[in-house]
Computed example of a mutant assay.
Amino acid sequence: MFRTAFSANSLLALIIFFVACQKESTQRLPYYNTPDFTPIFVQSEADLTAKVPHIIGRFSFTDQHGVSISQHDIEGKIHVADFFFTSCGVICPRMTKHMQLVEKAFPNAADVVLLSYSVTPWIDSVGRLKSYCQTNHIQSKNWHLLTGNKSEIYQLARQSYFAEEELGFSKDSTEFLHTEHFLLIDKHKRIRGIYNGTLELEMQQLIADIKTLRQES
């Protein structure tokens, strides 16, 4: 009798442990709705609609292959965005190297897109972006280095991606934009993470968070 009771208690403990682990493994990432990046956690679709109305806005720019890339190309996909320029001597090369860690973690994954927006688009022509890709061995078909109208890029960066955190709405569109942040956006164009693109450890967290988003229903 003692053995039977012990086995039943052990089984119950295992079930509780398994349920707890399942709950932890399916924990959702927070949402970010404002430039100060205050995390928001939601329990239902109704909460999400009410509490997190902010999504990435419409855009259309040209990538290193001369192909037009717009919001339609990220529909139903997870994407990571950063802001760089090809003549940057210190921070951008490190950011590019770290974005390559993300690229290698999801080689040609159809549901993961990388968008690197040039903040000096008047310099970074399609040809220059293509040369930059060749120099840095960027080959993924899902990594787009984008150029286009300066004010449109800056507006998208500051008002959609909150690229400069709390400064997101305080700068004029002509004032130079530069940030080391990577932004993680889910399949519904909502911001789900912000990371320091100069730190390799943060890239490991970004990769883990992308995997979490891929499991969301």
Rank of each mutant, 00 (worst) to 15 (best):
G66F: 10
L12M: 13
I210C: 06
Q27L: 05
W122I: 08
I138V: 14
R58A: 15
R190E: 07
A109V: 05
W122F: 09
K130N: 15
S70I: 13
N136T: 08
I91E: 01
Y132D: 07
K141A: 15
A105M: 06
T34R: 06
E200F: 07
R128E: 12
F106R: 01
L114K: 03
D36P: 02
S7L: 15
T198F: 00
I16L: 14
I91P: 00
I69K: 09
C21R: 11
Q22M: 12
A109D: 15
G127K: 12
W143Y: 06
F41G: 05
Q64D: 10
G66P: 07
M99E: 04
E103L: 04
I153A: 04
P121E: 02
S25R: 13
L167N: 12
Q100W: 02
N196M: 04
N196S: 11
L129M: 08
T198E: 05
I153P: 03
L156K: 03
S140C: 05
V19E: 03
S151M: 08
Y154A: 09
K130I: 03
V80H: 02
S10W: 13
Q134Y: 05
G127L: 08
N33E: 13
M95E: 01
Q134I: 09
L101G: 05
L199D: 12
K150D: 10
L206I: 02
M99K: 01
T34S: 09
I123L: 12
M95G: 00
Q204S: 08
L146I: 06
M99P: 03
Q205A: 07
H72S: 15
H65E: 13
T179K: 01
F37W: 15
E45Q: 15
A46S: 14
P35A: 04
S125R: 05
Q64P: 07
L12P: 00
A13V: 12
F84E: 01
S151N: 11
L206V: 01
D47Y: 10
N33T: 11
Y31S: 01
T135S: 08
A157Y: 02
H144C: 06
S7N: 11
A105G: 04
S151F: 05
Y154W: 09
G148F: 04
N142F: 07
H72D: 15
Q27D: 06
I55C: 11
E202W: 02
P121S: 07
A208G: 06
A8Y: 10
R214A: 13
E75D: 14
D82E: 10
E152G: 02
